[in-house]
Design a protein around this nucleic acid. Structure first.
Lengths: 117, 117
DNA sequence: AAGATATATCGTAAATATACGATTAACCGA
DNA sequence: TCGGTTAATCGTATATTTACGATATATCTT
């Protein structure tokens, strides 16, 4: 093996990581519900902090998140679940740990929706 | 009186409607909490709809909001209170009714915070 | 196979959110 | 001053959120 060094792990390319623009409308009932869903996911300081953490280090830190937050591991796991269910982050199993990254599309989408206000 | 016609009512200028830019940082603990607060306020479809309504018509419709939403008057009033407490909208008493408008600064601030992600 | 480590899930308690109808408060017009 | 209208608040039932410790699960290491 040419490179036995453990690389900084990162989630593989996002499933919908085709460079195509998001064609969904930014207004209307569906958009309102989408925005509400995304906003609700960001509606807790710990989750904002988590997203910021994942955006800053483009390499996805896994359980380091727990160390950064003043919360129990189980609570952090719950927050991660909320963010995952909203589609804002993605987790990828990497051996015994899980590697989280932001979903750039979701973030872009959120910005577009908020921008439409 | 030169113009006895009832003008489309609109909230007066916002208290902090000085054209000055918002100097608060978009990152850090305080910013995280601010973003969480604003996001949480948008975390319900009815509230997104209300904000959209108020943005679209720059003249602030008052109780017409109740008619637009499929919710009881008291429920709409509760949602308005949430938005008001988050600083996203402002209500001004106009006779027996109340005139709501968005707070452009808060909206700009939200966009800046989301944009910083 | 056994132990160590990382993460998710379960169970639970307390707090908050959501919705409604009923009531109250404020104001206008007759 | 008396009704009528508008909006807020109250009381309440139900659902969701948030937090924790305990437990389960899955993977690595030895």
């Amino acid at each position: 093996m040419a490179n036995p060094v453990k690389l900084a792990q990162s989630c593989g390319p996002s499933p919908q990581a085709n460079g195509e623009p998001d064609l969904r409308p930014v207004e209307g009932k569906a958009a309102d519900e989408e925005l509400a869903l995304l906003a609700r996911a960001l509606g807790h300081p710990a989750r904002v902090q988590i997203v910021r953490l994942l955006v800053r280090r483009e390499t996805c830190i896994c359980g380091d998140i727990v160390e950064e937050l003043p919360l129990a591991q189980s609570t952090v796991s719950q927050h991660l679940k909320v963010l995952k269910e909203a589609g804002l982050i993605r987790g990828e199993i990497d051996g015994p740990r899980v590697c989280y990254c932001v979903e750039p599309h979701a973030l872009r989408r959120l910005k577009a929706l908020v921008g439409s206000l």
